[in-house]
């Protein structure tokens, strides 16, 4: 099995909301005092690819697109057990939309050559778009299943479980295909000491647009079909009426009475 997993370096989504700031001049978000991380859903995708490799053998190649990619961050898939890491690291790749991002990733996937399953997270924690996986499928002309929590490899196809509102669907999808992975898969493994040592020694492969043979005008902002006009933080009113009491039980009873009075109950 040739497995390709797309991951992304993002600002830490678990950082306290108070540390989250937007620079209105650049429409960019930052968090103070927290290092970037591999996008959490991307880690679930790495875990899914490693599970397939364990069951069926093969090779896992992680691909990461961005700029200022911190090696200790983006090497996490390697330390978890991935075999190779390809970085698409260039100013030309960034500030794009789903389409231009997926175009670069698809070009890299074609250059890698052999692929049976391409995995991504269900959505990144920064854009919350959930579209890079489907876009790669459209570009490569292969089927796609989204929000997948379980994968079983059969002969020439995969049987996957896709989360839906009232349970899950079982889908049989021919290979090659794209799968987007959700947290219901189960917690990603921790890197082992051996994995961390291996990752330290392994140099990632870096591909520039010229290496992919892709016109830079089709990448990043210039290749985008959607433009972000504005990024802002919604204003919160924050008018909470705190109900007190001498004991927790008294406060609880007063809360019930206050809700009755306000006709909420």
């Amino acid at each position: 099995m040739n497995l390709i997993v797309c991951v992304k370096q993002v600002i830490d989504p678990e950082a306290p909301p108070a540390s989250f700031k937007i620079d209105p001049a650049t429409n960019k978000a930052t968090v103070q005092g927290a290092a970037p991380v591999i996008d959490p859903y991307g880690e679930y995708a790495v875990e899914a690819s490693l599970k397939i490799k364990e069951a069926k053998g093969g090779k896992v190649t992680a691909v990461c697109l961005g700029t200022a990619l911190q090696r200790e961050v983006v090497k996490k898939p390697l330390s978890m057990g991935a075999d190779d890491l390809v970085l698409l690291e260039d100013e030309a790749y960034v500030n794009g939309d789903t389409w231009s991002t997926a175009s670069a990733l698809a070009a890299a996937i074609k250059k890698i050559g052999a692929y049976d399953i391409i995995l991504t997270g269900r959505e990144a924690s920064d854009t919350n778009a959930g579209q890079v996986g489907p876009a790669i499928a459209e570009i490569l002309g292969i089927p796609c299943a989204t929000i997948v929590k379980k994968i079983e490899i059969l002969d020439g196809k995969a049987r996957v479980e896709r989360m839906v509102a009232d349970g899950y669907e079982v889908i049989e999808i021919p290979l090659p295909c794209v799968l987007t992975i959700t947290n219901e898969l189960g917690e990603p493994r921790y890197p082992t000491i051996k994995g961390i040592m291996m990752a330290k020694r392994k140099e990632p492969i870096v591909w520039k647009p010229a290496d992919l043979g892709v016109d830079a005008a089709k990448l990043g902002a210039s290749g985008s079909r959607a433009k972000m006009a504005k990024l802002f933080q919604p204003v919160k009113e924050g008018k909470c009426e705190i109900i007190g009491g001498d004991t927790p039980e008294e406060a609880a009873a007063k809360l019930a009475m206050r809700l009755r009075e306000a006709k909420v109950l």
Partner: peptide, 29 residues
């Protein structure tokens, strides 16, 4: 953060508050 989003709130241990709240709601209803 939930107190920045809520209209009404009680600060305390839910294990003590919830049973008393449920009992009072039952009585009111």
């Amino acid at each position: 953060n939930i107190f920045r989003e809520a209209r009404f709130g009680v600060v305390g241990d839910w294990k003590k508050i919830l049973p008393a709240f449920t009992a009072k709601v039952k009585e009111l209803l």
